[in-house]
């Protein structure tokens, strides 16, 4: 897929116009999937109640997408750019700090 102009031209992260798609939808640079918003088809998203969270890291390890990262304050939160809404983090959280809510846009 198109790398074209992704570095030179500032744009909303992950939003690529049709003119920027590379010939034949080829990928010309390896590892560029990090730039692609793969979490756009989730039907539910995780919301963390940080008052309940004890920073145990279980959600971080269970997330199949590896999209949960440590925040500045040492809590853990999913990057919704990649999160598919599977709910495994909410199921595994021993403190029930994570709620899956409807993704409504």
């Amino acid at each position: 897929m198109a790398k074209a102009k992704t570095k030179a031209k500032p744009r909303t992260k992950g939003e690529l116009g049709w003119k920027e798609v590379e010939l034949g939808f080829f990928i010309t640079e390896p590892g560029n999937s990090v730039e692609v918003r793969t979490g756009d088809w989730k039907s539910r998203r995780p919301v963390v109640d940080f008052k309940k969270c004890n920073k145990c890291t279980l959600c971080y390890f269970f997330c199949p997408e590896g999209c949960i990262a440590k925040t500045k304050d040492g809590y853990f939160e999913a990057d919704l750019f990649y999160c598919k809404g599977c709910g495994i983090c909410a199921t595994e959280c021993p403190k029930e700090a994570i709620t899956m809510v409807e993704e409504e846009r």
Binding site: M1, L16, E20, V21, F25, F26, I27, R37, D40, W41
Partner: peptide, 10 residues
């Protein structure tokens, strides 16, 4: 490569 809903239309 896979074209997710994010890019297929484009």
């Amino acid at each position: 490569a896979l074209g997710s809903p994010f890019i297929y239309t484009e």
